[in-house]
Every structure is written in C-alpha cells, then in structure tokens.
C-alpha cells in the first residue's frame, strides 16, 4: 500500500471538523465531505478560529494557519473524494446512514484506499460489512475535542487485514495522535467504562444519596479526577448521555449502561446541561471548556 498523502473526512460536524483539522495540521492534504455547504462553511470558520487562537497562545506559527487551511478542501460532491488514500467517517451514529455513505465512497475511491469509522458505539465489523472493503476497514475513535485530545481508540473488524490495520496505525501516529488498540466491542474502552460510571453517579443523585456538588467534590478530591461525573455530563449534554446509554445498553444489556429515568425527565424539562444553562448545575452563560 502506498503512503497516505490525501485524507478524506466524511461529515463536518464537530467531530469531523476536528479530525480534518488534525490531519491537515499534520501536513496531509485533506478533503472534507458533507452534504450541507452551510455545515462545511461553518466548520471552516470554526477551524480558522481554533487555529488563530493556537497562534495567539504560541502553539502554532502564524504562517501555518494559511498552509493548513490551504491544504483543506471542502466539498459536497462524493466524486471529489476519489483521490483519498484513507477516508475517516464521522457522520450520524446510525448503521444504515454509515452504510450508505461508505457504499458511495466505495464507488469513487481507489481500491487501495482505507476506510475508517469514528463511531463511538457501533460495531466496526457491522459497519465494515456495508463498506465494500471489509479487509481495509478500521475503527478510529477520536476524543472530543479532537484537535486537543491525542487519544484515538483503534479497532480492527473481524475481517480487517493486519496490513490495513498497521497502515492505519502508522497514519494515526503520523498525525501526531496516540493510538491504543482495542477489540471491536461496544463502547471500546472509554465509553464502555465511562457511560456506566456516569450513570452510577446520576443514580446517586436520583436516589437522594448526595447532591451533585458533593458527588463531584468526592470524586475530584478523593480520586484526583479533573472533573466530577455530573459536571462532565453537563458538559457533554444530557441528550448525548441518553444516546450513549441507548447505544451501549442496546448492545450489552448491562444494567449499569441503562439510562437512569432522571436523565429522561431532565431532558423533557429542557435541562440538557451547559448548552441550555441548566443541567445538574445552573450556568450563567453558555461557556465551553474552562468557561
């Protein structure tokens, strides 16, 4: 397999845009695909803003911004993905949607091209089964926010060839990321451990054992975690926690992965976390990390 020079990213939501930024920052020519031009334009503006802030903080040379943005092309046409040596999919977490995207990509990309999915909960083998190239398919689960987080959980599907997995692994390292190898299991490592842990914390609130602030303080001061579980859930969103629970519990039947009823009640009340100003805590303004 030839060296990877051109990277495709399918989907330009928060995750896709972040992955594209990681690839372009590392020097890869990057093509971002989305069916919405507005979404692509918004992603480009957000990427430009992130890069400018990186320059202001001394983490990036000023001249690099132009180079990175110049190396990044956005498109709504699937045919423009033809030159890609690898395509990382970051679209909606729905197996049928992912199959449809990969089927189109398979028709236009060269036979050498690797396909990767950024899924956090679906099976790599099941997604690969609808990709047309099961032997050249890997799981590459980035963490939010991708431009800041080095971790990538990499999983081979049942039919992934060693050659393909090794090539994807080297590519991941070439992007400056830190891959860890996991089996193709629901939630891989991070979500398999974190989602039930967070649910347990929610259940302590639900059953009146302690207030959110006391639970978070206990975890932070007792275990040295940088953030308590309830503040973290507020950050990622109660609606996201519900989706993660449904995906994980639906595949594992692990009682700890089942969504606590309190989450559904909070969502019904509009308490989604930071983004609505109210979750387990109240927020004065819509602020992200460190806000």
């Amino acid at each position: 397999m030839a060296e990877i020079a051109t990277v495709g990213v399918a989907g330009s939501g928060t995750m896709g845009a972040g992955i594209a930024l990681v690839a372009a920052r590392a020097g890869f020519r990057t093509i971002v695909l989305d069916q919405s031009r507005d979404t692509l334009d918004r992603a480009r503006r957000q990427s430009e803003g992130f890069l400018q802030r990186s320059v202001e903080r001394g983490r990036l040379k000023a001249g690099e911004v132009e180079r990175i943005l110049g190396d990044t092309v956005s498109t709504t046409r699937i045919e423009d993905m033809a030159p890609c040596d690898i395509v990382i999919e970051a679209v909606f977490e729905d197996l049928a949607v992912k199959h449809a995207v990969f089927a189109k990509l398979d028709a236009v990309c060269g036979p050498h091209a690797l396909f990767a999915s950024n899924t956090s909960t679906l099976s790599i083998t099941e997604i690969a089964a609808g990709s047309g190239r099961e032997d050249r398919f890997v799981g590459m689960h980035f963490c939010l926010p991708a431009p800041l987080m080095k971790l990538v959980e990499m999983s081979p599907g049942l039919k992934t060839s060693d050659h393909s997995f090794d090539a994807a692994w080297r590519f991941c390292e070439a992007m400056g990321q830190r891959p860890v190898k996991t089996k193709d299991r629901p939630g891989f490592i991070l979500n398999a451990l974190l989602v039930p842990f967070n649910n347990d914390a929610i259940r302590l609130v639900e059953t009146g054992v302690a207030e959110p602030a006391d639970i978070d303080r206990a975890v932070q001061r007792g275990l040295g975690y940088p953030m308590g579980p309830l503040a973290l859930i507020d950050l990622v969103g109660l609606d996201t926690q519900l989706l993660l629970c449904e995906a994980l519990h639906g595949r594992t039947n692990d009682p700890r992965a089942a969504c606590p009823p309190l989450v559904r009640r909070m969502i019904a009340a509009g308490y989604l976390g930071r983004k609505t100003g109210q979750g387990f805590y109240r927020y004065e303004r819509d602020a992200m990390f460190g806000g």
Binding site: M149, V180, L190, L193, Y225, M227
Partner: peptide
Amino acid sequence: DLDLTVRLGLGYPT
C-alpha cells in the same frame, strides 16, 4: 492501553 486510555481520554491521574 486500558490505563493510557483513561489517562489521555479523561485526564485521570492513574
């Protein structure tokens, strides 16, 4: 890798 994942992904000290 299990340990590295939670350290890098969640910022846990260990």
